[in-house]
Nucleic acid binder design. Structure first.
Length: 294
DNA sequence: AAACCAACCAACCGCGTTCTC
DNA sequence: TGAGAACGCGGTTGGTTGGTT
């Protein structure tokens, strides 16, 4: 028993879209709006799968789409966001107006991924990196959860090591707590909360006491006990995304990390145990699905 | 000029999540 | 509350293009 196809394949056009099909789709959506993709092809008179219509609209026909010519600034932003978010192409695309997840994914897999690997010394030779069996290996890396890391470490009988990348996350089922280590010497200012946080966290509160930011939906605590009292409130430029029950941090301190602090390098030994205890709480880790590391 | 190869990218596919009844 | 439909996402495929031999 295989999965039921989203629509019957017989009698449907496949492959590249013709300009006539594009015209039909655009004029239909302009008249009736987006949505109801399943029945759209029939209603619009297109011999296409609904999914295909949606993809075509979102990636190419939608107004405001930018194509090609990815600027240096955009490139840098993609790299930074990818470091933070991993292969979360739609989230990354959400921070690049006019760019689509598909374009960014393709750009990463064909261009940026190599560039990043090369710069980090991970790419010795192109041919070597490409591998003998796979001509075109995407540069997307599988994501790991901290739970995975912790579980492996637990099995080894020692605390998990800091992740290699600055962020380890999975496709979250539900995120109730997220932690990040604050560089000790943070400048002063304010905490900014995105719309989604307000939605999810309603009457959240922010206070400063120590160097760990712990987010427990629906509350937010910012602790910073290494700063003198008059340096508060601390400056955290956070975008908090609650998307389908998950949460992520974007652009902390505009991507800057204090001197001497390596991303992901703050955790280790007892410090990590403390953090785990802080995160997991007395209730254990049943409801913890992802952490963000910086 | 032809054959080959690598890169690019549009489109497809399957899965997980959310919505609706 | 459960089932099925709809939607959205990320991974993969395959056609096209441009460069090299």
């Amino acid at each position: 028993m295989g999965r039921k196809p989203c629509c019957p394949k017989e009698g449907l056009n496949r492959g590249a879209w013709t300009s006539m099909e594009d015209d039909i789709l655009v004029s239909y959506i302009q008249k009736h709006g987006e949505g109801k993709w399943g029945s759209l092809p029939r209603r619009a008179g297109l011999k296409r799968c609904g999914k295909s219509c949606r993809l075509r609209w979102l990636n190419y026909l939608r107004p405001g789409i930018k194509r090609g010519n990815i600027s240096d600034d955009e490139e840098e932003l993609i790299i930074r966001l990818h470091r933070l978010l991993g292969n979360r192409w739609s989230l990354i695309a959400g921070r690049l107006p006019g760019r689509t997840d598909n374009e960014i994914k393709n750009y990463w897999n064909t261009t940026l991924g190599k560039k990043v690997l090369k710069n980090s010394g991970g790419l010795k030779e192109d041919s070597e990196a490409a591998g003998a069996s796979s001509k075109r290996r995407p540069f997307s890396e599988p994501t790991r959860t901290v739970s995975d890391t912790a579980a492996q470490a637990h099995a080894r009988g020692r605390p998990p090591e800091p992740p290699e990348a600055s962020l380890v996350r999975s496709k979250a089922l539900r995120c109730t707590r997220t932690a990040m280590m604050l560089p000790v010497a943070q400048p002063t200012a304010h905490a900014r909360h995105g719309r989604a946080l307000e939605t999810a966290a309603g009457d959240d509160h922010v206070k400063a006491e120590q160097t760990v930011v712990v987010v427990k939906a629906p509350t937010v605590e910012v602790r910073q006990d290494h700063l003198p009292e008059d340096d508060l409130p601390i400056d955290i430029d956070l975008d908090l995304d609650f998307d389908m029950g998950e949460m992520g941090f974007l652009s902390p301190w505009r991507g800057e990390v204090a001197d001497g602090i390596e991303p992901g390098g703050q955790f280790g030994g007892g410090e990590l145990d403390d953090l785990e205890a802080l995160l997991l709480g007395p209730g254990g880790d049943d409801d913890v699905h992802e952490f963000a590391w910086f």
